[in-house]
């Protein structure tokens, strides 16, 4: 899906993709969207959990071959 920002965390292992997502989201405004792509299947659990804790919304998560995509919307 179309997002305003994208973050490539391929070949990083959790929790680094979550830390990178956190650090990017800190610089964004509420309502902005980000697509995170990674190769660690852990992101399919960890990024949604991180979003729940911090009030962000997961818009979509998909797997294409061995890559994992999570799209999120920054919360207030």
């Amino acid at each position: 899906m179309e997002t305003q920002h994208s973050l490539d965390t391929r070949n990083l292992l959790c929790p680094l993709p979550v830390i990178r997502t956190q650090n990017l989201v800190k610089t964004l405004n509420p309502g902005e969207t980000v697509e995170v792509v990674g190769t660690d299947p852990g992101i399919m659990n960890d990024i949604p959990a991180w979003c729940r804790i911090n009030g962000h919304e997961v818009l979509e998560s998909t797997t294409i071959e061995n890559e994992y995509f999570v799209c999120l919307k920054v919360g207030d």
């Binding site: 292992l13 959790c14 852990g42 399919m44 659990n45 960890d46 959990a49 991180w50 729940r52 804790i53």
Partner: peptide, 25 residues
């Protein structure tokens, strides 16, 4: 954390949750 679980296929069914995030939740 999930590191080696994430890598090795035989471990892919193990819980891959991040425990610190789980605790916070």
């Amino acid at each position: 954390e999930g590191h080696t679980h994430a890598i090795r296929k035989k471990d892919q069914n193990k819980s891959k949750r991040n425990n610190a995030l789980w605790v916070a939740e």
